[in-house]
Design a protein around this nucleic acid. Sequence first.
DNA 1: CTAGTTTTGTAACGATCGTTTTACTATATA
DNA 2: TATATAGTAAAACGATCGTTACAAAACTAG
Lengths: 223, 223
Amino acid sequence: MGRLQTFDNTVVVQAARDLFWNKGYEAASLADLEAATGLGRSSLYHAFGSKRGLFDAAVADYLETVIRPRLTVLRSGATDASALLEYFDSLARSTANLADDSLRSGCLLVNCAAGLAAHDDPARAVVESYRSELTGALRLALASAGLAPAAGTAGGAAAAKGDVAHRDGVSDAAKSSLDERVRTLASLSMSAMLVARVNRNEAVALLNTASNQIRVWFANSDR
Amino acid sequence: MGRLQTFDNTVVVQAARDLFWNKGYEAASLADLEAATGLGRSSLYHAFGSKRGLFDAAVADYLETVIRPRLTVLRSGATDASALLEYFDSLARSTANLADDSLRSGCLLVNCAAGLAAHDDPARAVVESYRSELTGALRLALASAGLAPAAGTAGGAAAAKGDVAHRDGVSDAAKSSLDERVRTLASLSMSAMLVARVNRNEAVALLNTASNQIRVWFANSDR
DNA sequence: CTAGTTTTGTAACGATCGTTTTACTATATA
DNA sequence: TATATAGTAAAACGATCGTTACAAAACTAG
């Protein structure tokens, strides 16, 4: 053994994460990262190998400490709309209460989707797995809230012919309709993060639209 | 007078636009721009002043030749859902039929929103005006299609107390509900463009979700 | 044909990029 | 305490960035 590291890896990673979150991957320079973390490039390269290595660590931390905690409520198994409402209301509150000059507005991965992910396959995979995790959690919450609609009740026009109920009690058409609700909510969530850096009020409005939609579904469901 | 310009400004701008569209502002280098346009930096700087000047011209062209033509159908004044359906179906078709290696996937301005617009006020203004134009067109199309709902019919839970009809025949609650529909559609449109570069099938599915939602609204409206 | 003006090609600019090297310091182990 | 090992600091690396300077080339106008 030899000398010990004088800094805590996770606080450095989180400082870097906030910088990437705020400025994007390419715009965050090594000089910026030195300033944000208080470390020299020497230490950064020793610990993370490269700028990209540090970024990957930052994304991992982002998923672990920002995304996952937000999604847990969706997996609570609540049998009413409370989990869904809590998810969108808390996201709306956070968005609304952010300081104007705050780093950490919007979503690191949404920003990634428009930037890195376009031509970097690993980055694309990370973004896609995030999207898939978000939709999965939303689907779970909708289903356990009893908001997987029987197709034709909420919107008769979308009813399919020859619909058959399956072993799990969810018909094809209902499944399709559940997917549509999942997509609507995921879409509102993602576009709110996209819009957050351009028009914060509108971002909050998008999240409130999700809440209102959930309430409508719940009011119209056969409880 | 002196020597005349040998190139057509708009074809150069469009070549640059496709490069920016594909790689983003920062990642598109002057060497790339030279290659894409076939011009030397000398000519580019003479004609556009700077990289940013060329980018601004590219954005202007994008709005004029890509965005506006897509939005015109929404302003046709159709009294049914056809305009809205045509907008989303045509967008879905374009997205689905795009070659894998195509430049021009997603939306130049959506990419901008996550990149430049974060710290560049002029860019933010452009993105915001695009968002506002999109929502305006969607609102117009929804209204003339008779899809500005009387609040409480489609979703009773959102009904407000003491709602009063105004001179234009649209109640407060109905207006609020119209806004929600506008936001839902705008959200699906924007998030589809965001997701297009990560998962094309899902982007198409988001656009189809919009179409299906419109059909449901139309089927449930009191025509 | 000449004079004057504008476009274009080439090259170099200084700045900054991410990365590597080198030397030095600090510490755990033996 | 001696030694090996690992962390840190500073500087320099080559590459690339957007931009500019300069001069040759091309063309209009007189």
